[in-house]
């Protein structure tokens, strides 16, 4: 972050790459919905595998989509690391906050059923 390390704005990657990313994003969204449907229909293939792992699958897919948009559409991949830090650090705090609250309330409710 030192002075005068002028990060020259690289030429942004072109439409071809953007299209690829868009297709991947679309496919991943389709996979999310597919996973949801599979987990809700006991007759469908892979139901037994997907059903218990639905949340995990969704988290991974959504995190991947998030990363793709941030890296390619928001240009974090070639932009200054400062920008990445400005997203990642708050995200860490945000994740800690959400997780901690969920754990705290789960723990509390386990101790006092009916609350």
């Amino acid at each position: 972050m030192d002075a005068q390390v002028a990060t020259h704005e690289h030429a942004h990657p072109g439409p071809a790459l953007y299209l690829k990313v868009a297709v991947i994003l679309f496919v991943m969204t389709a996979l999310e919905v597919l996973a949801f449907e599979v987990s809700h229909r006991s007759g469908w293939p892979m139901h037994g595998l997907v059903q218990p792992l639905l949340n995990e699958i969704l988290i991974i897919l959504s995190a991947a989509k998030f990363a793709l948009v941030a890296m390619f559409y928001m240009h974090l991949k070639q932009d200054s690391k400062i920008f990445s830090g400005l997203l990642v650090f708050p995200l860490i705090i945000a994740a800690v906050v959400i997780l901690a609250l969920l754990l705290l309330f789960a723990y509390l409710r386990a101790q006092h059923p009916g609350m």
């Binding site: 972050m1 005068q4 990060t7 400062i82 400005l86 995200l91 945000a94 994740a95 906050v97 969920l102």
Partner: peptide
């Protein structure tokens, strides 16, 4: 030229976006 070579307004919007992360994190919580 700025001290980092980065555009000031772009730095500002990124700062704001970082802040907004916590806004939505709280709503999601």
């Amino acid at each position: 030229p700025t001290a980092t070579g980065l555009d000031t307004r772009k730095l500002a919007i990124w700062t704001f976006i970082g802040s907004e992360c916590l806004f939505f994190a709280t709503l999601i919580s």
